[in-house]
């Protein structure tokens, strides 16, 4: 149950693009055609599924305060967490190169469809963001970390697929000239993000989900109260 919850949460509620704006650069740059968007999206899922669990291991056994106890009790005081940025990004960059080499050797057809996107991915904020969120949300087990990686990858994939499809269609619409291209893409993404916020109430079991929902509810009730207050004052007047 925990797995299912985390999976859906990372796809819809904490969607990489719409909730945290990660990977926006490649999201905007490579979303002109559906076919290329699918390629990049698949590559992101693939790389996230590899790097998040790897960085989880790194975090648990090297970086966290006291993580080095497996080397011996005298290492218990070490806290290397300030190194996490550099370790994570080095892992990601090397993994991306490694994946590129392995895929090229064993599956040329996959390489032809994914290959050109892999170098792009090393500097995609969604990948590093996945690892950093994994660290800051304190995901408990390796299985959950893998799950989180795949889930956020799928969320990113869905987002880029949707915007690419919309951009292919919008070419035939009468958009004001100054908004054409980038401007309208931003606004559409904003509207899609508002749409995705409605998933916020989907899960109530998880701690964070519940918290998030509470804040959303608070905002809405706040507004309702304010409106009521405003109405009342008007009536009183």
């Amino acid at each position: 149950m925990e797995h299912v919850e985390l999976f859906f949460k990372s796809i819809f509620i904490d969607n990489m693009v719409f909730a945290t704006f990660l990977g926006m650069c490649s999201y905007l740059a490579v979303s002109k055609k559906v076919s290329t968007a699918v390629g990049l999206g698949a590559a992101v899922i693939f790389v996230l599924a590899i790097t998040v669990p790897l960085n989880w291991l790194l975090d648990q056994y090297v970086l966290q305060p006291g993580a080095l106890t497996w080397l011996g009790p005298e290492y218990a005081d070490y806290d290397l967490s300030f190194l996490s940025f550099i370790m994570f990004i080095a892992t990601i960059a090397t993994m991306v190169q490694l994946v590129e080499i392995v895929v090229e050797k064993f599956s040329p057809s996959l390489y032809n469809s994914l290959g050109i996107f892999l170098p792009l991915i090393a500097v995609n904020c969604a990948i590093l963001g996945g690892s950093l969120f994994m660290q800051s949300r304190e995901i408990a087990t390796l299985g959950l970390a893998l799950n989180y990686g795949i889930g956020s990858g799928i969320g990113w994939f869905l987002a880029i697929l949707a915007i690419a499809a919309i951009r292919e269609k919008i070419r035939y619409s009468a958009v004001p000239p100054a908004l054409r291209g980038l401007g309208i893409t931003f606004i559409i993404t904003g509207l899609m993000a508002i749409g995705f916020m409605s998933f916020g109430g989907m899960l109530t079991g998880g701690d964070e989900g519940a918290k998030k929902e509470e804040t959303v509810v608070e905002v809405t009730t706040d507004n309702v109260e304010k409106k009521e207050l405003a109405n009342n004052t008007k009536i009183n007047e």
């Binding site: 704006f21 100054a178 908004l179």
Partner: peptide, 18 residues
Amino acid sequence: LSPMALIVVGIIIWVQRT
């Protein structure tokens, strides 16, 4: 809320390109 950031940037782009 986060979506409004996107829309604000969209509007800045609109103004700049106009």
